[in-house]
Design a protein around this nucleic acid. Sequence first.
DNA 1: GAAGTATCTGACACCGGTTACCGAATTGCT
DNA 2: AGCAATTCGGTAACCGGTGTCAGATACTTC
Lengths: 344, 344
Amino acid sequence: MERTGKPTINDVARIAGVSKKTVSRVINRSPLLNSDTRAKVEQVIADLGYVPNVQARALALRRNFLIGLIHDNPNAQMVMNVQAGMLEAMRDTEFELIVRPIDRGSSTMLEDVRNFLERQRLYGVMFLPPVSENEMVAELCRELGIRYVRMGSATLDSSEHMVASNDSEVVTEAVNHLIALGHRRIGLIAGPHGFRSARERRKGFENALEEAGIKLPRSLIADGNYTFETGLAAADRLLDLSPRPTAIFASNDEMAAATLHAARRRGMSVPEDLSIVGFDDTAIASHIWPPLTTVHWPIISMARSAALKLLAEFFGDDGSAVEEPSLFPSTLIHRASVAPPREG
Amino acid sequence: MERTGKPTINDVARIAGVSKKTVSRVINRSPLLNSDTRAKVEQVIADLGYVPNVQARALALRRNFLIGLIHDNPNAQMVMNVQAGMLEAMRDTEFELIVRPIDRGSSTMLEDVRNFLERQRLYGVMFLPPVSENEMVAELCRELGIRYVRMGSATLDSSEHMVASNDSEVVTEAVNHLIALGHRRIGLIAGPHGFRSARERRKGFENALEEAGIKLPRSLIADGNYTFETGLAAADRLLDLSPRPTAIFASNDEMAAATLHAARRRGMSVPEDLSIVGFDDTAIASHIWPPLTTVHWPIISMARSAALKLLAEFFGDDGSAVEEPSLFPSTLIHRASVAPPREG
DNA sequence: GAAGTATCTGACACCGGTTACCGAATTGCT
DNA sequence: AGCAATTCGGTAACCGGTGTCAGATACTTC
């Protein structure tokens, strides 16, 4: 009998002189197995170079060895960082990453997610903001019995299902810093209303001004969408004001970069004529000139931790011993885009 | 008998009063089927909301409905763009995207790729540079009988397996532009030696100078790694030269942005004191100030096209009728980072 | 030494599809 | 009408694993 293709569990069983069920037990590290038998089977597995068939396991277990990433995020750099963090956690495991962008606006969004989850039978899934802020997708995962973790800017779920940051407080800190330098007319470029992170950051901004007793004209708040283009429009609107703001806090780095772009386009110097603070600390923040003072959002760590939460059960044994953190404090990074206002 | 969970092919067959084989034929659009039968079965499928089980099909067909993306690329924005292009092509299909970064340096790289491909039984796989330039991975796909497409900066494979651009020529064009403006001392920040794209771009650079009869001191070429950090170091080295170059071509936008950063850090004006040209036209090129003159590399289109090549067979019927292009011309984008040298 | 118990191991059905093969039904042709 | 060719649909085996449960073996206990 010619042996073609890869060896299967049957080949292993036959050669080792045991049943395939026993081989299955070896693969799945079943505890109730005689160690001699185990050693014998493992030897055969090694000799043959046997690798269990993923598809067959998926069928029998009704579960794939795939981790999903569901997102609807306008910020490419951020998505990339999340992927990097997750892949780091999954490195050298048998898990793979499957990426699924969805359309937040679509009326079939929830159905799309459901179909995706039901079809793929993922081992676990991670949601990025803003989808992660949608309570219904979490509900859906619970209903389908799928492990999930949500990433967000506030705690929305229990620790095992959440990695969050403290956006509000750190923005307050950043704005306090501007105030301490003497800024009084401080503009805000807000994020999209649908994002919890946008609301948290705005809240942090308003808290700082309120604490300092600064009354903020409504016109100093401009709306953006977390994209460069909307940031540019918002910045232009703020810089057209008279008197101009002496500092602007943009709710993410893309829009902060756009603010810098807008300022320089009209011949202003940064930070002399305008101080700028961003949020995220993505690559662009340190790449542009002057490098941006911004809030470091530890997104790679968050993503890694999220993936580890999903895999915790698989790694088993110590499981809860090395509990992954759920709150990741953001920190203010001082760079060159902030200075005292020009004239006191 | 209680019906729990999702309906299976057996349920459909029973209710429609046909055998599961017939249902299977309907699903797989088998041509030899009575249209009445087909209609009846399709009706039942619709009523039940039946969806074929992906895992079972994967097992039986020895093939998954997954498209892989294998990359080892330092440029996050580029990888993101590729994903966007591929996902666009895969939108509304039953295919999903599975992402696999690998470690080019690793001695087990080829084994890693093989294991990945063998385990996952992908429908097709796409390789990004620089892995895509490795002839052995292509050989591997042929051996395993897996559809593949390589993305690169030169034609390395037959049309159905390749999407390529014309880096060399367009760089020549860009440098000719600098020469026409009067630049004579033009620096090059080269990409890593292992990248075909880096060699093509360098070749284009050297061709332009040669055609113009400009002899280039070796010191005007600095090595980079396509990352911002290495670009910064290379730019610093070039700007330390005396006399300084009046223009610098950086082999990608990241390094061009770093050059701008380095120049401004030492108080130089761009483009007055230094002209800069980049390559890729990623987001950062238009976001920084001044916006970069750069080469637009149509990577999203390339990626979309690559994915469509992989899926061509699946879409079937017209198949070769709408042949996807394989060569994607890059074009020079004129923005504000280039001007004539300061003094004639 | 017999009975009881804990520990392994194997037979068999099953996950939900597909393919091979075969028989039945329909159609075409003389 | 009779026979072959063609089309359609069904049965059974298979893809390569896992769950259930009973049987075999080893170890205690009295």
